[in-house]
Design a protein around this nucleic acid. Structure first.
Length: 145
DNA sequence: TCAGTGACTCCCC
DNA sequence: CGGGGAGCCACTG
């Protein structure tokens, strides 16, 4: 059976025989990989799903180290205001273009309407990541369960 | 091992 | 609505 979280990078080498605890890093990658085209998640939401509600900055750091050519849909993670946080590291234009190509629209302030494009993970996925109902509601995740 | 670091957030003004 | 400032905390070297 093993873990629900397929290994990836950093945790591979130190995975224990049965426990197979996924690191925060691996959970983040696993979550980001699941965000559908045309949908978004904020750094904070990803952090919360991965088990640390206040580790939004860490999520940014993890995605940063993936590099702009990563296969993961890193562009689908934005800040809590629906804005792009990657301009400072030189990927802002790239991220903006990728998102527009997926059909997302930006307002005058350069922000995306999260109410409209935020991804709502399925109840099944939230269960896999052990996201408590209370937290799910707090994150605006409202699967029709 | 441990102090820095920062693709974040929230709060205040 | 925008900018400044102070927490936050997993990861890195």
């Amino acid at each position: 059976m093993s873990s629900r979280f397929p290994m990836s990078s950093s945790n591979v080498g130190k995975a224990k025989k049965n426990k197979a605890l996924a690191s925060f890093n691996d959970k983040v990658l696993k979550i980001v990989r699941r965000i559908p085209k045309g949908k978004l998640l904020t750094y904070g939401q990803v952090a919360a799903m991965a088990g640390s509600p206040r580790a939004a900055r860490i999520v940014g750091g993890i995605l940063f180290r993936l590099g702009p050519d990563s296969r993961l849909p890193w562009q689908r993670v934005v800040n809590a205001q629906g804005g792009i946080s990657t301009f400072r590291v030189g990927s802002g234009e790239r991220q903006t273009a990728l998102l527009k190509a997926e059909g997302l629209r930006f307002n005058r302030a350069g922000r995306i309407n999260l109410k409209l494009y935020q991804w709502v993970p399925s109840a099944r996925l939230l269960k896999d990541f052990e996201v408590k109902d209370e937290l799910a509601i707090l994150l605006n995740f409202r699967p029709d369960w």
